[in-house]
Simulated assay, not measured.
Amino acid sequence: MTAELAFVIGYDISDPRRLLRVHREMCKHATPLEYSIFLLVGSENDKKLCLLEIGSLIEPQEDDVRCYALPARGFQGRIGRASLPEGIVWTGLPAAIA
Rank of each mutant, 00 (worst) to 15 (best):
M1Q: 13
M1N: 13
T2Y: 14
T2C: 07
A3P: 06
A3K: 14
A3M: 10
E4C: 04
L5D: 02
A6F: 03
A6P: 00
A6N: 03
F7E: 00
I9A: 04
I9P: 01
I9E: 04
I9R: 01
D15Y: 08
P16A: 07
P16N: 08
R17G: 06
R17A: 13
R18Q: 01
L19M: 11
L20V: 14
L20S: 15
R21Y: 03
V22P: 01
H23C: 09
H23S: 07
H23M: 03
R24C: 02
M26E: 06
M26V: 05
M26H: 03
C27S: 13
K28C: 15
K28V: 06
H29S: 08
H29R: 09
H29P: 05
H29Q: 09
H29L: 08
A30W: 00
A30M: 03
T31G: 04
T31C: 08
T31P: 01
P32R: 06
E34N: 10
S36G: 06
I37F: 10
F38W: 08
F38G: 07
F38M: 03
L39E: 15
L40R: 06
V41S: 09
S43K: 03
S43Y: 00
E44F: 09
E44L: 13
E44M: 11
E44D: 12
L49I: 13
L49Y: 08
L51K: 00
L52A: 14
L52N: 14
L52E: 15
L52C: 11
G55D: 03
S56M: 10
L57W: 01
I58A: 00
E59N: 15
P60C: 07
Q61D: 13
Q61S: 15
Q61K: 15
D63A: 04
D64A: 14
D64Q: 06
D64C: 11
V65L: 06
C67P: 01
C67V: 05
Y68H: 11
L70C: 09
L70Y: 04
A72Q: 11
A72F: 07
A72Y: 09
R73A: 09
R73Y: 07
R78K: 14
R78G: 11
R78C: 09
R78F: 08
I79R: 14
I79P: 00
I79T: 08
G80N: 05
R81D: 08
A82L: 09
A82K: 14
S83G: 14
S83P: 00
S83A: 11
S83Q: 12
P85M: 03
P85R: 11
E86C: 07
E86Q: 13
E86P: 12
V89Y: 10
W90Y: 10
T91S: 14
G92P: 03
G92S: 02
L93D: 03
L93S: 03
L93V: 05
A95Y: 07
A95M: 07
A96T: 14
I97P: 05
A98M: 07
A98C: 10
A98L: 12
